[in-house]
Nucleic acid binder design. Structure first.
Length: 628
DNA sequence: ACGGCTAACACT
DNA sequence: TAGTGTTAG
């Protein structure tokens, strides 16, 4: 349920940018012959023509809707072009769209100062407050003539839009001298957003729509109001009337059960109807938090801040197996899980190498139904465990998670279940401190190509034995190629870009992307608070394998004795590595800097430790040596 | 046979 | 924490 946030005192200028039927635009850019044509993007063409996930505006005129089948679309619009989503490993692969979405982010970031939040693959929030203030000070919109052309096409809520006069009215509104301060800021915001949209179009060929308002809620609400390729402004004076007649279901968060409950239980049809309830009354019905949120929402108040975040907080891969496709034995589950895990592994590896972020948790979700059983009450439980890097390990762990979930779901019976969907997710992603060199420097000499050091099938031949021994994961190597959006790092922002942005005097907006976060942060996420104070100069421990349900020992309940992956940071060399401790080969350890060697020796052979440490005072005491 | 595949977030 | 449920595009 939604929750209210304390709202900032100062009025802000917030924009919500929304790419128009994005997947279609991506395909149209790839194949320009599709431009201006009725087009839809469809996935899985084998059953009834596949499901539509994006529809061009030309096709919408024929009544084609998302959620139609390809066949239905053909019926209502015989001339429609159906483009299929790329498939890899027998599942839809959305990477091309993710990457295209990042292009837009890059443009937004490069041309805007202020916070920028990736809301989804095709949506961005911007906090333009500072930029708008600056514009108002330095180059306020003064005469109609000087207004940026695209801005004059804005839709201003409540502004009478006589056909012939519209643009004149908009111009007048944008540079009106008698406007209050808030409206003037909004006008500046509108101009900035218009410029940004033009730039996005020039640099990516994508059109987008936008909403400009004093908070996120309102900006989002109107960004879709005039589409495609248009923007809408919400002056504060028009908020009340606008909301008064707005059906509750249109509000974000009220499109589902909560909205239905408002209608069905309270007779609230429009947002305005909500005004008839006191905050206390709403709290009685929906709890303190949601009650307050509803009360504020009805008044157009939203304190939600634009986050400074360009990267997703989790990565997930999933697939459904409807009806006859349901999976009914372990081997089919395993083979699908393997594919999903391969994709997931690829994605977190590229997140690591491009963004210097590690994921800490692996979660498995499944849906299951029972054979002829009536609509089974029981749900397949989701299961999670610490995430270990490496495709094989992820596959192994995911399968264990599945077995564990299946056991809860199905007991010890061994047949009769059927799985209708599977998904794996990597979450709890943290920045790791940037290291300047690859571990390969120690193994192969300083001239090694750092970029080949990623664990996996893509590794170079020389690395293969190491990989087979499961020694090393993920040296944190140099950032990926600059400026160009390459395959691996398409969904992120490169180091060079970060620098060029900073060079432009834009304040620190990319600190998260650069991975300069403190190692302490990482530590505090994965270990008890008491350890935050330890002088770990160098070492961080995290990550465990999944519990084997059978071997759940007393020790495991303390949650610390099965640690087997470590993130190692040496302040001396400035390097950071992740190791699978369980598999460390002493021969390779010998190549590492001494301080690291000592620590690792401690993990493997506690007795040989040079300086025995008190249990509980060091990271190594949390690692359970073999045979424990 | 289901809309499929992602994501974010609040609650417990 | 891990696990559930809701919402959205």
């Amino acid at each position: 349920m939604p929750v209210a946030r304390p709202e900032p005192q100062e009025p802000r200028v917030i924009a919500h940018l929304d790419l128009d039927c994005f997947y279609v635009q991506v395909e149209q850019r790839r194949n320009p012959a599709l431009k201006g044509q009725p087009t839809a993007v469809v996935q899985y063409n084998d059953w009834k023509g596949g499901g539509l996930i994006a529809v061009s505006y030309e096709a919408r005129k024929f009544g084609v809707k998302r959620s139609m089948r390809g066949d239905e679309a053909k019926n209502v619009c015989p001339g429609i072009n159906l483009v299929q989503v790329p498939v890899s490993r027998d599942k839809a692969d959305l990477n091309v769209y993710r990457n295209a979405g990042s292009e837009v982010l890059v443009v937004a970031i490069l041309s805007t100062k202020g916070k920028c939040e990736r809301a989804s693959m095709d949506e961005v929030y911007l906090d333009l407050t500072d930029a708008a203030k600056e514009m108002l000070l330095e180059s306020p919109p003064e005469s109609s003539e000087s207004i940026f052309d695209e801005a004059t096409k804005s839709n201003i809520l409540d502004l009478p839009s006589d056909v012939g006069e519209r643009e004149e009215n908009v111009k007048a509104w944008l540079c009106r001298a008698d406007a209050n301060y808030q409206d003037k800021l909004l006008a500046c915001g509108a101009i900035l957003v218009a410029q940004l949209r033009v730039k996005v179009l020039e640099e990516t060929q994508f059109t987008c729509s936008a909403g400009i308002a004093h908070n996120k809620m309102l900006a989002k609400l109107v960004s879709g109001m005039h589409k495609p390729a248009q923007q809408t402004v919400v002056p504060s004076s028009s908020v009340q009337d606008f909301l008064a007649s707005l059906p509750v279901k249109k509000m974000k968060q009220l499109g589902g059960k909560l909205g239905s409950s408002l209608q069905g239980d309270l007779g609230v049809e429009t947002v305005g109807d909500l005004l008839g309830f006191t905050e206390e009354k709403l709290q009685e019905y929906y709890g303190v938090n949601t009650g307050t949120w509803l009360w504020k929402t009805a008044r157009g108040i939203s304190g939600e801040e634009v986050e400074d975040r360009l990267l997703p907080k989790s990565h997930g891969c999933g697939k459904t197996f409807p009806g006859p496709k349901a999976l009914k034995n372990h081997s089919s589950v395993k083979s699908w899980l393997d594919k999903l895990c391969e994709e997931l592994s690829e994605r977190i590896q590229s997140d690591l190498s491009c963004n210097k972020r590690v994921a800490q948790t692996l979660t498995l979700h499944a849906r299951a139904s029972k054979e002829n059983e009536s609509n089974s009450v029981k749900k397949f439980p989701s299961k999670s465990c610490p995430l270990r890097y490496g495709t094989g390990k992820i596959q192994e762990d995911a399968m264990k998670l599945f077995e564990s979930g299946l056991h809860d779901f199905w007991g010890s019976r061994n047949a009769g279940w059927s799985i209708t969907s599977l998904s794996v997710t990597a979450s709890k992603i943290f920045d790791i401190p940037s290291g300047t060199n690859s571990i390969l420097k120690y193994i192969k000499g300083p001239s090694s190509d750092a970029s080949s050091a990623i664990l996996d099938s893509s590794s170079t031949p020389e690395l293969t034995p190491l990989v087979d021994n499961n020694l090393y994961m993920t040296p944190v190597h140099e950032q990926c190629e600059p400026s160009s959006i390459n395959e691996e790092c398409g969904n992120s922002i490169s180091a060079k870009q970060c620098r060029s942005i900073e060079g432009k005097g834009v304040p620190k907006k990319l600190s998260k992307v650069q991975g300069t976060g403190s190692i302490l942060k990482f530590l505090s996420q994965s270990q008890p608070a008491q350890h935050e104070k330890r002088n770990f100069d160098g070492l961080i421990c995290s990550h465990q394998g999944p519990e084997s349900s059978s071997g759940a020992s007393e020790a495991e309940q303390h949650g610390r004795d099965n640690i087997n992956t470590a993130v190692v940071h040496s302040s001396g060399s400035g390097n950071t590595w992740m190791l699978n401790v369980e598999d460390i080969d002493p021969a390779v350890v010998g190549e590492l800097p001494l301080e690291i060697q000592r620590e690792i020796q401690g993990w493997i052979h506690p007795s040989k430790q040079a300086t025995p440490k008190k249990r509980g005072s060091t990271i190594s005491s949390y690692f359970s040596p073999a045979g424990r």
